[in-house]
């Protein structure tokens, strides 16, 4: 088996202990891969180390051990090819929505003329439906609009990989659903490779091809990979009617409610972090 497009190889992250004791291990020996064009979600309880994994993939944080290899090359820092949609949107508050996007576009194309940058910004603003609010500062935008700007900014650099840290968790259900559909569509159209952290089981089933289930920390592990066999294209309106949806959802919920804690204490014998078991709950036995 060859290497995946994004290959996480035995990473660990330890933080120095606050009281001079031994370092705290958030996770260690984490292995997984993401194929090109694949959408992978990571689900786990708060504090298990999801953001830490995403930051390492983004190059914003460094693994204490192990490596992340993208397209055959070990990463050693952030890159325009790996865009991040931050949980807290992280817009620059002194710039307007349009200027925030222009800042990203200019980073990707330093030589572009003003008009060219403006045209590209327009395109992305229209795409996320923000034409009326382009000249507003983030403080004047609603949570959903801010997150839209964040999405447009991330996509406007035309990355190869899109990393998302609970991008919709702060939004109301209606806005969240609309943005999920938008992201789903854009990712499929542009054949992006996507990695998303979420707390929302329905969101994961809607968007992901595979769902990584992480046990509780400290020393969190990726216990299991759930393969989402529900047929695409999926929409928010019909996904829960698909056969196998209930089994898939129950499997993940069972993990979150019960097994994430039990497995954190003892993993089943024969469990190998390099060969995480794959399950297909939606496929009838």
């Amino acid at each position: 088996m060859g290497r995946a497009f994004v290959s996480v190889e035995g990473i660990a992250r330890r933080f120095p202990s606050t009281h001079g004791g031994p370092p705290q291990t958030v996770f260690e020996n984490v292995w997984f891969g993401i194929e090109e064009g694949e959408f992978v979600c990571l689900i786990g309880h708060s504090g298990c180390g999801k953001t830490t994994i995403l930051n390492i993939l983004a190059g914003l944080d460094r693994a204490s051990e192990g490596a992340v290899v993208v397209a055959g090359r070990e990463i050693d820092g952030p890159s325009l090819d790996r865009a991040v949609i931050f949980q807290s949107h992280a817009l620059l508050p002194w710039l307007t929505a349009e200027e925030n996007i222009a800042f990203a576009v200019r980073s990707r194309h330093p030589g572009w003329a003003r008009a060219q940058v403006a045209e590209e910004c327009r395109r992305w603003i229209d795409l996320v439906g923000l034409s009326a609010a382009a000249g507003k500062k983030p403080a004047q935008l609603s949570g959903g609009m801010k997150q839209r700007v964040g999405i447009a900014r991330a996509l406007s650099v035309r990355p190869k990989i899109l990393l998302m840290d609970e991008p919709f968790s702060a939004l109301d259900a209606l806005t969240r659903g609309m943005l999920q559909d938008e992201v789903n569509r854009i990712v499929a159209e542009t054949k992006l490779t996507a990695f998303m952290i979420t707390h929302d089981v329905d969101e994961a089933i809607l968007l992901a091809d595979r769902i990584l289930l992480m046990t509780n920390g400290p020393n969190a592990k990726i216990a299991e990979v759930v393969v989402n066999t529900l047929p695409r294209p999926r929409t928010r309106h019909d996904v829960h009617h698909l056969p196998g949806y209930a089994e898939l959802r129950n499997h993940i919920l069972d993990f979150l409610v019960d097994r994430s804690q039990r497995l954190a204490e003892t993993m089943p014998s024969g469990w190998d972090p390099r060969r995480i078991p794959e399950v297909r709950p939606a496929v009838p036995a």
């Binding site: 983004a58 952030p78 890159s79 991040v84 807290s88 992280a90």
Partner: peptide
């Protein structure tokens, strides 16, 4: 804010 610096870093500024 660290997140603003992180934005600049991911944009390779």
């Amino acid at each position: 804010r660290r997140e603003w610096l992180n934005v600049a870093r991911t944009l390779e500024c």
